[in-house]
């Protein structure tokens, strides 16, 4: 298992586009790190630099105890799982999984053994002699995993490996991958644009936007203390409510009503998670519910508050109707952001 250290790693594409702004962080041995962000924010570029598929424009990349900037992908002791699986269409499952080993000149019986072990682990025994075109999406996904596993790499890289699967299979594979990683204990970097995947799988999440790292933290940190309005609105469904508020005399106010004590002066952006707004007949605040979204286990109320739209999440047993409603706010769950920069205050 390896520790991975990025030191001001930067990528500028030949056309001059800066896809990754200088980024520094360390991934600990055995850690499962998820790179999350909207599409086009530079996640794949970052991952591909780690894999060696993309030249590093600036900075150092260290895997284990060596700087690998100029090391060939095959020699970085990594394995990668691609979004479209990238299975070799003309090879059987067995050959697909064993191809990397064969190129390392490993003895045939050793390869066979390893392929069989991987197939056992992934429930692929019955499919070893099929071609990828004869497999279902989930099975192909497993073959791609198998190809990664047999190499005993010190680092797993995943680039949106579940995006091509349907919702149900995606949930199942998410759990399988996570369990497998726990079992093997291999350091992993996992790229996704799906914040649910990020939240559920990660030991630590790295949120990216526009080529920059917005925040690095555990899922709980990222969810409860987002470092910026971007993270606040990207993580969580429905996202955090971001409201314009005014700070005066050590109090943050919306529509003239004091929400919480806060030092400072002038406009700020106030963040409240939808579940932190609680329906309460005795609540201090009055919102106007315009639409109710029924989700079974809970409901999302779309409402306006002092002229700003908000969402409120309530449990299924709370009765709700459109029209005026009184709510209370968990004041310890509030986040404050600079109104201009969007950074957390």
């Amino acid at each position: 298992m390896a520790q991975v250290t990025l030191n001001t790693l930067r990528k500028v594409y030949p056309n001059g586009f800066e896809a990754v702004k200088p980024a520094s962080f360390t991934i600990e041995k055995g850690e499962f790190v998820v790179l999350v962000g909207p599409s086009g924010c530079g996640k794949s570029t970052m991952l591909r630099m780690i894999a060696g598929l993309e030249d590093i424009t600036q900075g150092d990349l260290q895997i284990g105890d060596r700087i690998v900037n100029d090391v060939d992908p095959a020699d970085r002791d990594i394995a990668m799982v691609f979004q479209n699986y990238a299975l070799y269409p003309h090879m059987t499952v067995r050959k697909n999984i064993g191809y990397g080993l064969k190129n390392r000149k490993i003895a045939k019986d050793v390869i066979d053994q390893k392929v069989t072990d991987a197939a056992n682990l992934l429930n692929l025994n019955d499919y070893l002699d099929r071609k990828p075109s004869q497999l279902s999406g989930g099975q192909r996904q497993r073959v791609a995993m198998g190809r990664a596993i047999v190499r005993d790499p010190s680092l797993f890289l995943f680039d949106e490996p579940l995006s091509n699967l349907d919702a149900k299979l995606r949930n199942q594979m998410r759990i399988e991958i996570k369990a497998l990683q726990r079992r093997l204990g291999v350091t992993s970097v996992y790229v996704t644009h799906d914040q649910v995947e990020a939240m559920t799988m990660a030991d630590r999440i790295i949120v990216m936007n526009g080529g920059e790292i917005e925040q690095i933290g555990t899922p709980a940190q990222v969810y409860h203390s987002p470092a910026s309005t971007f993270v606040a609105s990207f993580m969580g469904a429905p996202p955090m409510n971001l409201l314009d508020a005014l700070v005066a005399e050590n109090a943050a106010m919306i529509g003239g009503q004091t929400i919480a004590q806060f030092a400072g002066h002038g406009p700020v952006t106030l963040g409240i998670r939808p579940e932190d707004i609680l329906p309460d007949p005795n609540g201090d605040f009055e919102i106007n519910v315009t639409l109710i979204e029924e989700l079974g286990a809970h409901r999302i109320l779309h409402a306006t508050w002092a002229g700003q739209t908000i969402m409120v999440s309530v449990a299924k047993d709370v009765t709700a109707e459109t029209g005026t409603m009184h709510v209370a706010i968990k004041s310890d769950a509030l986040s404050f952001f600079d109104a201009q920069t969007g950074r957390r205050l």
Binding site: R48, A51, F82, G100
Partner: peptide, 14 residues
């Protein structure tokens, strides 16, 4: 031919 094929192959040491 999908881009990823050459990438997978390079990681596989081809």
């Amino acid at each position: 031919v999908p881009e990823e094929l050459i990438e997978a192959a390079r990681i596989d040491g081809a």
